[in-house]
Design a protein around this nucleic acid. Structure first.
Lengths: 228, 228
DNA sequence: ACCTGAACACCGTTCAAGT
DNA sequence: ACCTGAACACCGTTCAAGT
């Protein structure tokens, strides 16, 4: 793996970081470890990357960059285009579970993130959304992609979820949690469930645009106050 | 702050950890620092907490615990109850931005998380959702709460978002990103936008239950394949 | 029983020094 | 110009030792 003869570049550092996270997870990615992976002292990396934070930001953007390209986004109507992007983002993130934590937490905006935001936004604007609603729509789509995917990736194996989950499966907690004791044993397919969520969101966006959403269920203001 | 006379307990350690994260952020929370905050050596904490991971899990559960209590969940129909929980979760997390990272990433299920899942699930079951759809519904609600809130909290100040965002505001990137250049300047109220998302999701759940969602926009399978 | 001190095996990052 | 070695200021966690 380590070829110290090739000159170090920003891209070689980035690719090695992605490869290391892929093979051993995010917690294995330290500057020192990354250095040895590249056959170089850790301190040499700082010639090509300002610090670890910037490297993580670059990793996020490299991943998000793949969400939008000519093959990925079909020449369909706005629903089809947004659905395609949402499905591709989901597939990319589930293939690299360590990336979800990064993508969810890092606020830095790079080229990849901008291209993705632009694709969603123009699809909505072309579909007749007002700029205001398109702005909300982008956040709704973005929040759905990140949140729903994170929520699915969080359940990698039932074994890692804690003793309570086993007890639930065995029906030992029916008295305390009657509802989940029933539903937890239901068939659960990630791809199918995500499709449902994507359809729900796109349908909801169309209804929002057309003024078909029922009146507010609540402003939220009262709940905010009740915390004080 | 440090009173070494009071005996250390699990709860005192937990409360101190929450207070420290509140005042100085999650990155300030180290076992050593937490020890000095309690007037004790770091190693004494291990008498009351197996390790740092377990402490973080306990912090998450303490926060989620507050999402469900008698005052917070009104005696309303399922829409009102789910909306109330979603709004309360949102308010709690925006008040403790450091908690979102934790809540989104930690898979461990404790009492608080179970009570929250149970409240959502029973609301859906009572509203006539099949167990299968209630299961999906819980994940849809959960994904929305976490994802949408994380997405909003990620934008604490425009200043921290990077140079690109400033350029967008100034209209310097209109050629590359025409869509976002238009929408980025739109009015943006977090509470209002979240209300929109909550209404959209609850309306979508009702339509899902009643079989009113339009046919699939895509199964996702083709996008998954195109990654290979 | 509860807390401590020293130690171990790590971190990210700096900086003067080497080639 | 590019890389290195030693050093600094931290981590989480262990374990034998103290009271």
């Amino acid at each position: 793996m380590a070829r110290s003869r090739d000159a170090l570049t920003h891209d070689r550092v980035l690719q090695a970081a992605l490869a290391l996270a892929d093979s051993e997870g995010l917690e294995a990615l330290s500057m020192r470890r990354l250095g040895t992976e590249l056959g170089v002292e850790a301190m040499s990396l700082y010639r090509h990357v300002p610090n670890k934070e910037a490297l993580l930001d670059a990793m996020v953007d490299a991943i998000v960059h793949d969400w939008i390209d000519d093959e990925a986004v079909p020449a369909a109507d706005w629903r089809g285009r947004i659905a395609a992007i949402m499905h591709r983002a989901h597939a990319t993130l589930l293939a690299r579970p360590w990336a979800i934590e990064l993508v969810t937490v890092r606020p830095r905006v790079g080229d990849g993130r901008l291209r993705y935001a632009e694709a969603i936004t123009t699809a909505l604007l072309e579909a007749g959304f007002t700029p205001q609603l398109a702005h909300h729509g982008l956040h709704i789509v973005d929040g759905t992609v990140m949140g729903f995917t994170a929520q699915q990736a969080r359940r990698p194996s039932a074994a890692a979820l804690g003793d309570r989950v086993h007890a639930l499966y065995n029906g030992d907690l029916t008295a305390d949690y009657p509802g989940i004791s029933v539903t937890i044993r239901e068939h659960h397919d990630h791809a199918e469930e995500y499709s449902l969520m994507v359809d729900l969101v796109i349908d909801g966006l169309a209804r929002l645009r057309d003024g078909l959403l029922p009146p507010r269920t609540g402003s939220g203001a009262s709940y905010v106050l009740s915390l004080a």
